[in-house]
Design a protein around this nucleic acid. Sequence first.
DNA 1: TCTGAAGTAATGTGATCACATTTAACGTAG
DNA 2: CTACGTTAAATGTGATCACATTACTTCAGA
Lengths: 234, 234
Amino acid sequence: MNTVPDEKIEFKTQQERVYYLLREAILRGKFEPGKSVTLRGIASMLDVSLMPVRESLRRLTTERALELLSNRRIAVPEMTQLKLEEIYRIRIVLECEAAVRALPYIDDAALAQLVALNEKHNKAIANGDIENYIYLNFIFHRTLYNLGQPQVLMPILESLWLQIAPFMRMVYEEIFAQGNFSDMEDQHEQAIAAIIAGDSDALEAAIRGDMLDGAIGLQTAMGWPPQAISLLKG
Amino acid sequence: MNTVPDEKIEFKTQQERVYYLLREAILRGKFEPGKSVTLRGIASMLDVSLMPVRESLRRLTTERALELLSNRRIAVPEMTQLKLEEIYRIRIVLECEAAVRALPYIDDAALAQLVALNEKHNKAIANGDIENYIYLNFIFHRTLYNLGQPQVLMPILESLWLQIAPFMRMVYEEIFAQGNFSDMEDQHEQAIAAIIAGDSDALEAAIRGDMLDGAIGLQTAMGWPPQAISLLKG
DNA sequence: TCTGAAGTAATGTGATCACATTTAACGTAG
DNA sequence: CTACGTTAAATGTGATCACATTACTTCAGA
Protein backbone atom coordinates (compact mmCIF):
# COMPACT_ATOMS: atom_id res chain seq x y z
CA MET A 1 0.00 0.00 0.00
CA ASN A 2 1.10 3.48 -0.73
CA THR A 3 1.24 6.48 1.53
CA VAL A 4 -0.63 8.48 -1.04
CA PRO A 5 -3.52 6.57 -2.58
CA ASP A 6 -3.36 8.24 -5.96
CA GLU A 7 0.34 8.81 -6.28
CA LYS A 8 1.00 6.46 -9.15
CA ILE A 9 -1.70 7.72 -11.47
CA GLU A 10 -0.87 7.83 -15.14
CA PHE A 11 -1.86 11.15 -16.61
CA LYS A 12 -3.20 11.47 -20.11
CA THR A 13 -2.03 15.03 -20.62
CA GLN A 14 0.79 17.21 -19.36
CA GLN A 15 -1.72 19.71 -18.03
CA GLU A 16 -3.26 17.02 -15.84
CA ARG A 17 0.12 15.98 -14.49
CA VAL A 18 1.15 19.55 -13.73
CA TYR A 19 -2.19 20.23 -12.10
CA TYR A 20 -1.97 17.30 -9.72
CA LEU A 21 1.64 18.03 -8.85
CA LEU A 22 0.83 21.60 -7.93
CA ARG A 23 -2.34 20.56 -6.16
CA GLU A 24 -0.53 18.07 -3.96
CA ALA A 25 2.20 20.60 -3.22
CA ILE A 26 -0.44 23.06 -2.05
CA LEU A 27 -2.19 20.43 0.08
CA ARG A 28 1.18 19.67 1.69
CA GLY A 29 1.55 23.31 2.71
CA LYS A 30 4.50 23.91 0.42
CA PHE A 31 3.01 27.18 -0.82
CA GLU A 32 3.56 30.26 1.25
CA PRO A 33 0.56 32.61 1.61
CA GLY A 34 0.99 35.84 -0.31
CA LYS A 35 3.85 34.45 -2.34
CA SER A 36 3.44 34.69 -6.09
CA VAL A 37 4.15 32.03 -8.65
CA THR A 38 5.05 32.50 -12.30
CA LEU A 39 4.17 30.54 -15.39
CA ARG A 40 7.76 30.31 -16.57
CA GLY A 41 9.04 29.44 -13.13
CA ILE A 42 6.77 26.42 -12.81
CA ALA A 43 7.26 25.52 -16.46
CA SER A 44 11.03 25.34 -16.14
CA MET A 45 10.78 23.59 -12.79
CA LEU A 46 8.58 20.83 -14.24
CA ASP A 47 10.28 20.95 -17.63
CA VAL A 48 7.21 21.65 -19.72
CA SER A 49 6.14 24.53 -21.91
CA LEU A 50 3.91 27.35 -20.77
CA MET A 51 0.71 25.80 -22.07
CA PRO A 52 0.15 23.01 -19.54
CA VAL A 53 1.10 25.41 -16.75
CA ARG A 54 -1.31 28.04 -17.96
CA GLU A 55 -4.22 25.66 -17.95
CA SER A 56 -3.25 24.16 -14.60
CA LEU A 57 -3.07 27.55 -12.96
CA ARG A 58 -6.37 28.48 -14.53
CA ARG A 59 -7.91 25.46 -12.85
CA LEU A 60 -6.31 26.29 -9.52
CA THR A 61 -7.42 29.91 -9.63
CA THR A 62 -10.95 28.77 -10.43
CA GLU A 63 -10.79 26.55 -7.35
CA ARG A 64 -9.60 29.53 -5.31
CA ALA A 65 -6.35 27.76 -4.50
CA LEU A 66 -4.54 30.62 -6.23
CA GLU A 67 -5.57 34.15 -7.03
CA LEU A 68 -5.09 36.45 -10.01
CA LEU A 69 -4.11 39.82 -8.67
CA SER A 70 -4.82 43.05 -10.50
CA ASN A 71 -1.08 43.32 -11.18
CA ARG A 72 -1.51 40.38 -13.50
CA ARG A 73 0.31 38.27 -10.95
CA ILE A 74 -0.69 34.86 -9.61
CA ALA A 75 -0.36 34.40 -5.88
CA VAL A 76 -1.48 32.33 -2.92
CA PRO A 77 -4.46 34.21 -1.43
CA GLU A 78 -4.23 35.73 2.03
CA MET A 79 -6.62 34.69 4.77
CA THR A 80 -9.00 36.94 6.68
CA GLN A 81 -11.03 36.34 9.80
CA LEU A 82 -14.30 36.56 7.88
CA LYS A 83 -13.08 34.23 5.17
CA LEU A 84 -11.83 31.65 7.63
CA GLU A 85 -15.08 31.67 9.55
CA GLU A 86 -17.03 31.30 6.33
CA ILE A 87 -14.90 28.38 5.20
CA TYR A 88 -15.36 26.53 8.45
CA ARG A 89 -19.09 27.15 8.67
CA ILE A 90 -19.35 25.51 5.25
CA ARG A 91 -16.90 22.74 6.06
CA ILE A 92 -18.82 21.80 9.19
CA VAL A 93 -22.16 21.30 7.48
CA LEU A 94 -20.80 19.73 4.30
CA GLU A 95 -18.26 17.39 5.87
CA CYS A 96 -20.76 16.20 8.46
CA GLU A 97 -23.11 15.49 5.58
CA ALA A 98 -20.36 13.71 3.67
CA ALA A 99 -19.36 11.59 6.67
CA VAL A 100 -22.90 10.50 7.50
CA ARG A 101 -23.46 9.76 3.84
CA ALA A 102 -20.39 7.53 3.71
CA LEU A 103 -21.10 5.63 6.94
CA PRO A 104 -23.34 2.88 5.50
CA TYR A 105 -20.74 2.09 2.84
CA ILE A 106 -17.78 1.53 5.17
CA ASP A 107 -16.85 -2.15 5.08
CA ASP A 108 -13.99 -3.87 6.90
CA ALA A 109 -11.47 -3.14 4.18
CA ALA A 110 -12.34 0.54 4.13
CA LEU A 111 -12.19 0.70 7.91
CA ALA A 112 -8.75 -0.91 7.87
CA GLN A 113 -7.61 1.65 5.33
CA LEU A 114 -8.84 4.50 7.51
CA VAL A 115 -7.09 3.03 10.55
CA ALA A 116 -3.87 2.66 8.59
CA LEU A 117 -4.10 6.23 7.33
CA ASN A 118 -4.65 7.50 10.85
CA GLU A 119 -1.61 5.58 12.06
CA LYS A 120 0.52 7.18 9.39
CA HIS A 121 -1.00 10.49 10.30
CA ASN A 122 0.00 10.06 13.93
CA LYS A 123 3.43 8.82 12.90
CA ALA A 124 3.93 12.02 10.96
CA ILE A 125 3.41 13.96 14.17
CA ALA A 126 5.95 11.85 15.99
CA ASN A 127 8.48 12.40 13.23
CA GLY A 128 7.84 16.13 13.09
CA ASP A 129 6.95 15.69 9.43
CA ILE A 130 4.65 18.66 9.06
CA GLU A 131 4.00 18.37 5.34
CA ASN A 132 2.93 14.76 5.57
CA TYR A 133 0.87 15.54 8.64
CA ILE A 134 -1.02 18.27 6.81
CA TYR A 135 -1.48 16.15 3.72
CA LEU A 136 -2.51 12.94 5.47
CA ASN A 137 -5.18 14.83 7.36
CA PHE A 138 -6.86 15.75 4.08
CA ILE A 139 -6.36 12.26 2.72
CA PHE A 140 -8.06 10.75 5.75
CA HIS A 141 -11.11 12.93 5.25
CA ARG A 142 -11.17 12.39 1.52
CA THR A 143 -10.87 8.63 1.84
CA LEU A 144 -13.74 8.58 4.30
CA TYR A 145 -16.06 10.78 2.28
CA ASN A 146 -15.28 9.10 -1.03
CA LEU A 147 -16.91 5.92 0.27
CA GLY A 148 -20.27 7.65 -0.11
CA GLN A 149 -19.35 8.43 -3.73
CA PRO A 150 -20.18 12.11 -3.56
CA GLN A 151 -19.94 13.59 -7.04
CA VAL A 152 -20.90 17.14 -6.17
CA LEU A 153 -19.73 17.46 -2.58
CA MET A 154 -16.20 16.25 -3.17
CA PRO A 155 -15.02 18.98 -5.56
CA ILE A 156 -16.42 21.62 -3.23
CA LEU A 157 -14.58 20.19 -0.24
CA GLU A 158 -11.34 19.85 -2.16
CA SER A 159 -11.59 23.50 -3.12
CA LEU A 160 -12.02 24.45 0.51
CA TRP A 161 -9.04 22.31 1.53
CA LEU A 162 -6.88 23.99 -1.09
CA GLN A 163 -7.83 27.34 0.37
CA ILE A 164 -6.78 26.54 3.93
CA ALA A 165 -3.82 24.26 3.26
CA PRO A 166 -1.23 27.05 2.93
CA PHE A 167 -2.05 28.22 6.46
CA MET A 168 -1.88 24.85 8.14
CA ARG A 169 1.88 24.95 8.41
CA MET A 170 1.71 27.90 10.79
CA VAL A 171 -0.56 25.96 13.11
CA TYR A 172 1.63 22.92 13.49
CA GLU A 173 4.95 24.71 13.45
CA GLU A 174 3.75 26.54 16.53
CA ILE A 175 2.51 23.37 18.17
CA PHE A 176 5.71 21.51 17.35
CA ALA A 177 7.81 24.37 18.65
CA GLN A 178 5.98 24.43 21.95
CA GLY A 179 5.79 20.65 22.07
CA ASN A 180 2.33 20.53 23.58
CA PHE A 181 0.61 17.87 21.55
CA SER A 182 -1.44 16.93 24.58
CA ASP A 183 -4.04 19.57 23.82
CA MET A 184 -4.71 17.94 20.49
CA GLU A 185 -7.54 15.51 20.86
CA ASP A 186 -7.45 12.83 18.23
CA GLN A 187 -10.82 13.38 16.63
CA HIS A 188 -9.93 10.90 13.89
CA GLU A 189 -9.67 8.22 16.56
CA GLN A 190 -13.13 9.11 17.80
CA ALA A 191 -14.46 9.10 14.26
CA ILE A 192 -13.11 5.59 13.78
CA ALA A 193 -14.71 4.50 17.04
CA ALA A 194 -18.02 5.94 15.89
CA ILE A 195 -17.71 4.11 12.59
CA ILE A 196 -17.07 0.80 14.35
CA ALA A 197 -20.07 1.44 16.59
CA GLY A 198 -22.12 2.44 13.57
CA ASP A 199 -23.10 5.56 15.49
CA SER A 200 -24.04 8.27 13.01
CA ASP A 201 -24.43 11.00 15.62
CA ALA A 202 -21.07 10.22 17.22
CA LEU A 203 -19.39 10.30 13.81
CA GLU A 204 -20.92 13.67 13.09
CA ALA A 205 -19.78 14.93 16.48
CA ALA A 206 -16.24 13.72 15.82
CA ILE A 207 -16.10 15.43 12.44
CA ARG A 208 -17.54 18.61 13.89
CA GLY A 209 -14.99 18.46 16.69
CA ASP A 210 -12.20 18.00 14.19
CA MET A 211 -13.40 21.03 12.25
CA LEU A 212 -13.66 23.18 15.37
CA ASP A 213 -10.17 22.16 16.50
CA GLY A 214 -8.84 23.13 13.11
CA ALA A 215 -10.63 26.45 13.13
CA ILE A 216 -9.40 27.34 16.60
CA GLY A 217 -5.87 26.25 15.73
CA LEU A 218 -5.85 28.45 12.66
CA GLN A 219 -7.35 31.42 14.47
CA THR A 220 -4.77 31.31 17.26
CA ALA A 221 -1.91 30.77 14.82
CA MET A 222 -3.02 33.86 12.91
CA GLY A 223 -3.12 35.82 16.12
CA TRP A 224 -6.87 36.22 16.03
CA PRO A 225 -9.29 35.78 18.92
CA PRO A 226 -10.40 32.14 18.68
CA GLN A 227 -14.12 32.71 18.56
CA ALA A 228 -16.35 29.71 18.32
CA ILE A 229 -17.78 28.99 14.91
CA SER A 230 -21.41 28.11 15.31
CA LEU A 231 -23.15 25.40 13.43
CA LEU A 232 -26.21 26.11 11.41
CA LYS A 233 -29.13 25.95 13.82
CA GLY A 234 -27.07 25.72 16.96
CA MET B 1 -31.16 50.21 -13.73
CA ASN B 2 -30.35 47.26 -15.87
CA THR B 3 -32.09 43.96 -16.24
CA VAL B 4 -28.82 42.23 -15.79
CA PRO B 5 -26.71 43.79 -13.04
CA ASP B 6 -23.36 42.94 -14.55
CA GLU B 7 -24.17 43.22 -18.21
CA LYS B 8 -22.05 46.23 -18.99
CA ILE B 9 -18.86 45.08 -17.37
CA GLU B 10 -15.65 46.03 -19.12
CA PHE B 11 -13.40 43.02 -19.36
CA LYS B 12 -9.67 43.27 -19.04
CA THR B 13 -8.92 40.18 -21.10
CA GLN B 14 -10.55 38.32 -23.93
CA GLN B 15 -10.63 35.19 -21.82
CA GLU B 16 -12.69 36.97 -19.21
CA ARG B 17 -15.16 38.24 -21.80
CA VAL B 18 -15.56 34.84 -23.40
CA TYR B 19 -15.98 33.23 -19.99
CA TYR B 20 -18.79 35.53 -18.91
CA LEU B 21 -20.54 35.25 -22.26
CA LEU B 22 -20.54 31.47 -22.09
CA ARG B 23 -21.44 31.51 -18.43
CA GLU B 24 -24.48 33.67 -18.99
CA ALA B 25 -25.53 31.56 -21.94
CA ILE B 26 -25.43 28.49 -19.73
CA LEU B 27 -27.37 30.21 -16.95
CA ARG B 28 -30.01 31.14 -19.52
CA GLY B 29 -30.46 27.51 -20.45
CA LYS B 30 -29.05 27.97 -23.94
CA PHE B 31 -26.89 24.88 -23.63
CA GLU B 32 -28.44 21.52 -24.32
CA PRO B 33 -27.49 18.68 -21.96
CA GLY B 34 -25.25 16.10 -23.60
CA LYS B 35 -24.45 18.40 -26.50
CA SER B 36 -20.76 18.95 -27.13
CA VAL B 37 -19.02 22.22 -27.84
CA THR B 38 -15.77 22.75 -29.73
CA LEU B 39 -12.97 25.20 -29.22
CA ARG B 40 -12.96 26.32 -32.82
CA GLY B 41 -16.72 26.59 -32.97
CA ILE B 42 -16.87 28.99 -30.06
CA ALA B 43 -13.74 30.80 -31.23
CA SER B 44 -15.20 31.55 -34.65
CA MET B 45 -18.58 32.41 -33.16
CA LEU B 46 -17.06 35.01 -30.83
CA ASP B 47 -14.35 35.99 -33.30
CA VAL B 48 -11.36 35.26 -31.09
CA SER B 49 -8.47 32.83 -31.33
CA LEU B 50 -8.39 29.49 -29.59
CA MET B 51 -6.48 30.72 -26.56
CA PRO B 52 -9.19 32.69 -24.75
CA VAL B 53 -11.67 29.93 -25.48
CA ARG B 54 -9.36 27.26 -24.14
CA GLU B 55 -8.92 29.05 -20.84
CA SER B 56 -12.62 29.87 -20.55
CA LEU B 57 -13.62 26.28 -21.11
CA ARG B 58 -11.00 25.17 -18.61
CA ARG B 59 -12.64 27.40 -16.05
CA LEU B 60 -16.10 26.13 -16.88
CA THR B 61 -15.04 22.50 -16.71
CA THR B 62 -13.44 23.16 -13.34
CA GLU B 63 -16.76 24.59 -12.19
CA ARG B 64 -18.51 21.46 -13.48
CA ALA B 65 -20.54 23.55 -15.92
CA LEU B 66 -18.96 21.53 -18.69
CA GLU B 67 -17.30 18.14 -18.78
CA LEU B 68 -14.23 16.73 -20.51
CA LEU B 69 -15.18 13.35 -21.89
CA SER B 70 -12.68 10.57 -22.41
CA ASN B 71 -13.07 11.07 -26.16
CA ARG B 72 -11.31 14.40 -25.70
CA ARG B 73 -14.64 16.13 -26.24
CA ILE B 74 -16.19 18.89 -24.18
CA ALA B 75 -19.87 18.55 -23.42
CA VAL B 76 -22.67 19.65 -21.13
CA PRO B 77 -22.87 16.99 -18.39
CA GLU B 78 -25.92 14.78 -18.08
CA MET B 79 -27.95 14.71 -14.90
CA THR B 80 -28.66 11.70 -12.71
CA GLN B 81 -31.08 11.19 -9.87
CA LEU B 82 -28.28 10.88 -7.34
CA LYS B 83 -26.49 13.96 -8.61
CA LEU B 84 -29.63 16.07 -8.58
CA GLU B 85 -30.47 15.02 -5.04
CA GLU B 86 -26.92 15.81 -3.94
CA ILE B 87 -27.01 19.23 -5.55
CA TYR B 88 -30.25 20.15 -3.86
CA ARG B 89 -29.23 18.88 -0.46
CA ILE B 90 -26.22 21.19 -0.69
CA ARG B 91 -28.21 24.08 -2.14
CA ILE B 92 -30.73 23.93 0.69
CA VAL B 93 -28.21 24.23 3.49
CA LEU B 94 -25.90 26.69 1.77
CA GLU B 95 -28.54 29.00 0.34
CA CYS B 96 -30.44 29.13 3.62
CA GLU B 97 -27.16 30.06 5.26
CA ALA B 98 -26.49 32.68 2.60
CA ALA B 99 -29.96 34.19 2.92
CA VAL B 100 -29.88 34.42 6.69
CA ARG B 101 -26.41 35.88 6.48
CA ALA B 102 -27.60 38.57 4.08
CA LEU B 103 -30.74 39.52 6.00
CA PRO B 104 -29.20 42.11 8.37
CA TYR B 105 -27.61 43.92 5.44
CA ILE B 106 -30.77 44.43 3.40
CA ASP B 107 -31.60 48.13 3.36
CA ASP B 108 -34.46 49.84 1.52
CA ALA B 109 -32.53 50.23 -1.70
CA ALA B 110 -31.60 46.56 -1.75
CA LEU B 111 -35.15 45.56 -0.97
CA ALA B 112 -36.43 47.70 -3.81
CA GLN B 113 -33.94 46.04 -6.13
CA LEU B 114 -35.13 42.60 -5.09
CA VAL B 115 -38.75 43.60 -5.61
CA ALA B 116 -37.94 44.97 -9.06
CA LEU B 117 -36.07 41.80 -9.97
CA ASN B 118 -38.98 39.68 -8.86
CA GLU B 119 -41.37 41.76 -10.97
CA LYS B 120 -39.21 41.23 -14.02
CA HIS B 121 -39.04 37.58 -13.13
CA ASN B 122 -42.84 37.32 -13.05
CA LYS B 123 -43.11 39.35 -16.23
CA ALA B 124 -40.86 36.83 -17.96
CA ILE B 125 -43.39 34.11 -17.10
CA ALA B 126 -46.24 36.14 -18.51
CA ASN B 127 -44.31 36.71 -21.73
CA GLY B 128 -43.32 33.07 -22.04
CA ASP B 129 -39.70 34.18 -22.04
CA ILE B 130 -38.15 31.02 -20.65
CA GLU B 131 -34.52 32.06 -20.92
CA ASN B 132 -35.03 35.27 -19.00
CA TYR B 133 -37.16 33.45 -16.49
CA ILE B 134 -34.43 30.93 -15.81
CA TYR B 135 -31.74 33.59 -15.66
CA LEU B 136 -33.63 36.10 -13.50
CA ASN B 137 -34.29 33.38 -10.96
CA PHE B 138 -30.55 32.97 -10.44
CA ILE B 139 -30.03 36.72 -10.45
CA PHE B 140 -32.62 37.16 -7.73
CA HIS B 141 -30.88 34.65 -5.50
CA ARG B 142 -27.44 36.04 -6.26
CA THR B 143 -28.48 39.61 -5.60
CA LEU B 144 -29.95 38.58 -2.26
CA TYR B 145 -26.97 36.54 -1.11
CA ASN B 146 -24.39 39.07 -2.29
CA LEU B 147 -25.67 41.53 0.30
CA GLY B 148 -24.01 39.37 2.94
CA GLN B 149 -20.76 39.63 0.98
CA PRO B 150 -20.03 35.91 0.95
CA GLN B 151 -16.58 35.35 -0.49
CA VAL B 152 -16.51 31.58 -0.19
CA LEU B 153 -20.17 30.64 -0.46
CA MET B 154 -20.87 32.54 -3.65
CA PRO B 155 -18.50 30.71 -6.00
CA ILE B 156 -19.81 27.40 -4.70
CA LEU B 157 -23.41 28.37 -5.33
CA GLU B 158 -22.63 29.72 -8.77
CA SER B 159 -21.02 26.41 -9.64
CA LEU B 160 -24.15 24.57 -8.53
CA TRP B 161 -26.36 26.89 -10.58
CA LEU B 162 -24.24 26.27 -13.65
CA GLN B 163 -24.75 22.55 -13.17
CA ILE B 164 -28.55 22.69 -13.06
CA ALA B 165 -29.20 25.53 -15.49
CA PRO B 166 -29.17 23.39 -18.65
CA PHE B 167 -32.03 21.31 -17.25
CA MET B 168 -34.25 24.19 -16.19
CA ARG B 169 -35.61 24.67 -19.69
CA MET B 170 -37.28 21.26 -19.59
CA VAL B 171 -39.13 22.19 -16.42
CA TYR B 172 -40.65 25.39 -17.67
CA GLU B 173 -41.29 24.26 -21.23
CA GLU B 174 -43.51 21.59 -19.74
CA ILE B 175 -45.25 24.02 -17.42
CA PHE B 176 -45.76 26.55 -20.21
CA ALA B 177 -47.10 23.87 -22.51
CA GLN B 178 -49.65 22.73 -19.93
CA GLY B 179 -50.36 26.29 -18.87
CA ASN B 180 -50.76 25.46 -15.19
CA PHE B 181 -48.79 28.19 -13.49
CA SER B 182 -51.21 28.05 -10.58
CA ASP B 183 -49.26 25.24 -8.92
CA MET B 184 -46.23 27.46 -8.77
CA GLU B 185 -46.15 29.20 -5.46
CA ASP B 186 -44.14 32.38 -5.61
CA GLN B 187 -41.55 31.66 -2.98
CA HIS B 188 -39.69 34.80 -3.94
CA GLU B 189 -42.72 36.80 -2.87
CA GLN B 190 -42.70 35.06 0.49
CA ALA B 191 -38.99 35.66 0.83
CA ILE B 192 -39.54 39.37 0.27
CA ALA B 193 -42.33 39.38 2.84
CA ALA B 194 -40.01 37.68 5.33
CA ILE B 195 -37.31 40.26 4.62
CA ILE B 196 -39.73 43.12 5.23
CA ALA B 197 -40.83 41.47 8.47
CA GLY B 198 -37.19 40.85 9.37
CA ASP B 199 -38.16 37.26 10.07
CA SER B 200 -35.10 35.07 9.70
CA ASP B 201 -36.97 31.78 10.09
CA ALA B 202 -39.58 32.76 7.53
CA LEU B 203 -36.87 33.76 5.07
CA GLU B 204 -35.16 30.44 5.53
CA ALA B 205 -38.47 28.66 5.04
CA ALA B 206 -39.11 30.56 1.83
CA ILE B 207 -35.68 29.73 0.44
CA ARG B 208 -36.07 26.10 1.42
CA GLY B 209 -39.50 26.05 -0.21
CA ASP B 210 -38.06 27.54 -3.38
CA MET B 211 -35.34 24.89 -3.44
CA LEU B 212 -37.83 22.07 -2.90
CA ASP B 213 -40.12 23.38 -5.66
CA GLY B 214 -37.16 23.47 -7.99
CA ALA B 215 -36.06 19.98 -7.07
CA ILE B 216 -39.53 18.53 -7.56
CA GLY B 217 -39.94 20.38 -10.83
CA LEU B 218 -36.68 18.98 -12.16
CA GLN B 219 -37.43 15.47 -10.98
CA THR B 220 -40.84 15.37 -12.66
CA ALA B 221 -39.48 16.97 -15.85
CA MET B 222 -36.83 14.25 -16.00
CA GLY B 223 -39.49 11.61 -15.54
CA TRP B 224 -38.20 10.58 -12.15
CA PRO B 225 -40.27 9.92 -9.03
CA PRO B 226 -40.35 13.27 -7.23
CA GLN B 227 -39.04 12.12 -3.90
CA ALA B 228 -38.64 14.69 -1.17
CA ILE B 229 -35.12 15.89 -0.53
CA SER B 230 -34.56 16.00 3.17
CA LEU B 231 -32.71 18.68 4.94
CA LEU B 232 -29.81 17.93 7.15
CA LYS B 233 -31.26 16.97 10.54
CA GLY B 234 -34.86 16.74 9.41
C1' DT C 1 22.03 57.55 3.37
C1' DC C 2 17.93 58.33 1.08
C1' DT C 3 14.82 59.52 -2.86
C1' DG C 4 13.34 59.21 -7.46
C1' DA C 5 13.65 58.58 -12.40
C1' DA C 6 15.27 56.04 -16.48
C1' DG C 7 16.24 51.87 -18.45
C1' DT C 8 16.00 46.83 -18.44
C1' DA C 9 14.19 42.39 -17.35
C1' DA C 10 10.20 39.62 -16.47
C1' DT C 11 5.24 38.60 -16.56
C1' DG C 12 0.53 37.10 -18.31
C1' DT C 13 -2.12 37.22 -22.58
C1' DG C 14 -3.06 36.28 -27.38
C1' DA C 15 -2.05 34.25 -31.88
C1' DT C 16 -0.37 30.76 -34.90
C1' DC C 17 1.38 26.38 -36.20
C1' DA C 18 2.20 21.24 -35.68
C1' DC C 19 0.63 16.82 -34.15
C1' DA C 20 -1.65 12.58 -32.37
C1' DT C 21 -6.13 10.97 -31.80
C1' DT C 22 -10.80 10.63 -32.90
C1' DT C 23 -14.83 11.20 -35.68
C1' DA C 24 -17.26 11.37 -39.93
C1' DA C 25 -17.62 10.43 -44.83
C1' DC C 26 -17.09 7.75 -48.56
C1' DG C 27 -16.88 3.96 -51.52
C1' DT C 28 -16.56 -0.95 -52.15
C1' DA C 29 -17.64 -5.85 -51.44
C1' DG C 30 -21.28 -8.91 -49.94
C1' DC D 1 -29.67 -2.19 -49.41
C1' DT D 2 -26.41 -3.34 -45.76
C1' DA D 3 -21.87 -3.99 -43.52
C1' DC D 4 -17.19 -2.77 -43.34
C1' DG D 5 -12.58 -0.92 -44.24
C1' DT D 6 -10.25 3.22 -45.93
C1' DT D 7 -9.64 7.96 -46.39
C1' DA D 8 -10.38 12.73 -45.12
C1' DA D 9 -11.87 16.19 -41.90
C1' DA D 10 -12.08 17.84 -37.27
C1' DT D 11 -10.72 17.95 -32.41
C1' DG D 12 -7.98 18.98 -28.04
C1' DT D 13 -3.15 19.40 -26.67
C1' DG D 14 1.46 21.28 -26.77
C1' DA D 15 5.07 24.46 -28.37
C1' DT D 16 6.79 28.82 -29.87
C1' DC D 17 6.72 33.62 -30.81
C1' DA D 18 5.12 38.59 -30.26
C1' DC D 19 3.43 42.15 -27.35
C1' DA D 20 1.60 45.39 -23.83
C1' DT D 21 2.03 45.94 -19.09
C1' DT D 22 4.30 45.56 -14.75
C1' DA D 23 8.20 45.00 -11.66
C1' DC D 24 12.91 45.40 -10.74
C1' DT D 25 17.53 47.37 -11.11
C1' DT D 26 20.58 51.02 -11.48
C1' DC D 27 22.42 55.33 -10.99
C1' DA D 28 22.13 60.15 -10.46
C1' DG D 29 21.12 64.06 -7.24
C1' DA D 30 20.31 65.79 -2.70
